[in-house]
Simulated assay, not measured.
Amino acid sequence: MNNEYPVLEYLTKYLENDLSENDLSHMIYPTAISKTLKMDIDSIKLGEAIVKINANVKFHGNQQGTIHGGLLCELADAAIGTAHSTLMKKDESFTSVDLKINFYRPTWNTILKAHAKPIKSGKTLTHYECTIYNDENKKVAYITSTVMTLKGEKAKGR
């Protein structure tokens, strides 16, 4: 018999290594892209998440030999999506409306952590901020994003 949990409870159990093979949520965790890029959830709260990656220029580098900005965008998007998913009910889903990133410093081989939290939450639109830090706790990038909550029929198949 399957045990279905709300996303926040599911992810809390996931982080505590307390999931059984019958435990599930209406959202898929870990996500396929997170598994592919080897990103992990570091911490989770209602509406807030920290997602990390062990960034390595051999795998994530650009032509200058630093970590590619697209990886930073994906890390921020994963943190924002994880944060927002904790707010979703079973018949709800969401989609990103926009994402803006400011790059503060280049980075190389390091553990990057993206901390996402809401700036302003509404019934349909939520505005997030996300700061990415390196393993020296220096700001690497600052991201803002708007996420739209989809309900009922609009959420089906998403």
Rank of each mutant, 00 (worst) to 15 (best):
A78L: 13
L87F: 01
N56T: 10
T82E: 03
D40M: 09
I80R: 05
L75R: 05
G65C: 05
S43G: 08
Q64A: 10
L46Q: 15
N62K: 06
A79L: 02
G47N: 08
K58F: 12
H68L: 08
S85L: 08
M39A: 04
L71F: 00
Q63P: 14
K52E: 15
K52P: 09
V57Q: 02
G81S: 08
G61C: 07
T82S: 03
D42A: 15
M39H: 11
G81R: 06
G69N: 08
G61E: 00
Q64G: 10
S85G: 04
T86S: 13
L87M: 05
A49F: 02
G69S: 00
G47S: 10
V57C: 11
F59Q: 14
M39I: 12
G81D: 11
V57T: 06
G69E: 11
L46N: 15
V51Q: 07
A76P: 06
A49S: 07
S43D: 11
K38P: 06
I67Q: 01
I44G: 08
G65K: 04
L72C: 00
I80H: 01
Q64N: 07
L46W: 12
M39Y: 06
A76L: 12
I50G: 07
K38T: 03
D42S: 12
D77M: 04
N54H: 12
